[in-house]
Design a protein around this nucleic acid. Structure first.
Lengths: 244, 244
DNA sequence: TTGCTCCTCACGTCACGTGAGGTGGC
DNA sequence: TTGCTCCTCACGTCACGTGAGGTGGC
């Protein structure tokens, strides 16, 4: 009499292998056997499997249960802590869900924080700028990313910025110098709107931070030599003007 | 120049091994190497790692991405479906959360559906009855479990039920017969309140259902011979009276 | 005899983690 | 020389899944 392995698995809503796995780990005692060697489970075995399933569904690992065997019999003690974890998981998924909804509704990009996603979705944005924003999205705090997204709107109409985008790799040195000067005000405004960016630039004393070096690496890759030179020249002028 | 493996992993918020794992699966092209053999990643690599991470965070397997490579570049096509999955997961976790809150607030049992949990938490309930309810909790629909929980309240004051709980294993045959007769009305009422229970008893034509056999197995284990006999005798009388 | 269930190894899976052993730049 | 990073195998982990090969009851 008693239940077979299949029966106790079915009653617990799980599989043969799962029940046997719990035996292997010592979480579930082996029941008596009938004459032919078949296992004969009782209600206590079912209760134990249900408890183990419950606690793992709630996020506990089998290893944790092996180490603290008595948790299985006095589950209340851990449930409070488990409840906290579940709430956190739900909060995280709600975040994901709202991001997903935002992406689907606005056809925004998936690689960057929400505010920047809309900026990147703009078809008029040149490809290098788009990619640079992806990198910046990884380096900035969400607040700073939001500030950057706002600033990008005014920059979209900045003639100097448009000229920079179109700058030829072999552009005339005088043109480079001139363009760099005209881009300084926009750069200063950007920096003042984003305290984070200034923080990022400071980094370790004497040497640039890892984040700033990552930014430079991206700029070097994404823009042509003339553009890279303009960026550096502009940065020097800006440092002379506002210190960062 | 470009980024090292560590740098691109950090930028993507993941690990060295993860980046290499994506190479192994063919999800991420290997970048150029510098003279010493070090890999030099560019922005496109970072974007790809971010996409892969995003899609797996949202519940897709790496194998799915390997099979449908282009999903990585046109992620919008799958996000709608992913959004559905996320909603389902959230709904499931909300369920878990409310059950947890219920358990923690009411000190209820964890092995049974909520309505039965309170019944089981009652100290006055004899151990065999408690265990039988755990088994029933696995065999009944939630609605039927709720009906059973309600019915248990009236049964708690039924003198015949109390007498059954205390019945000695060697109880007199006359007493067994008499008790079985007195328990019939309660049993009939229980069956009429729970259509599920009747369904469960019907099972396959001619033979008892797997669920009913499971129930018998539990009864045989949990109660003494005299009690088991009373249950069967009561069942016969009930079948004579109402057909199930 | 056929089909079904049970049993015990024991290797496979998934998404990486974690050394093992060696090279290269400061 | 020391310490740090990079490299490529290659085995380990977690919670089981999935046969492989054999026995037992109808």
């Amino acid at each position: 009499m008693g239940w077979s392995t299949r029966e106790v698995a079915d009653l617990a809503g799980t599989t043969l292998r799962t029940v046997r796995h719990y035996h292997d780990l010592g979480l579930l005692p082996e029941p008596q056997r009938s004459a032919n060697g078949y296992k004969q489970y009782g209600v206590d075995h079912l209760v134990r499997v249900l408890r183990i399933r419950r606690l793992t569904e709630l996020g506990m690992s089998l290893q944790q249960l092996v180490e603290a065997h008595d948790l299985i019999d006095r589950p209340h003690d851990v449930l409070a802590r488990v409840a906290v974890d579940v709430r956190e998981t739900i909060a995280r998924l709600e975040e994901v869900r709202s991001e997903l909804d935002f992406i689907l509704e606005s056809s925004a990009a998936v690689d960057v924080p929400p505010p920047l996603a809309l900026v990147i979705a703009d078809d008029r944005l040149p490809e290098p700028d788009r990619k640079l924003l992806v990198v910046l999205g990884r380096l900035l705090t969400p607040e700073s990313a939001a500030a950057l997204a706002e600033a990008m709107e005014t920059l979209a109409d900045d003639p100097a910025a448009r000229e920079f985008d179109a700058l030829a790799a072999d552009a005339d040195p005088d043109l480079r110098r001139d363009l760099a000067e005209r881009m300084v005000p926009g750069s200063i405004e950007l920096h003042q709107r984003m305290p984070d960016l200034m923080e990022l630039k400071r980094g370790a004393p004497g040497r640039p931070s890892a984040a700033l070096r990552s930014l430079h690496t991206a700029v070097d890759e994404l823009y042509n030599p003339a553009q890279v030179e303009v960026v550096h020249r502009m940065a020097e002028l800006r440092v002379a003007a506002i210190g960062v």
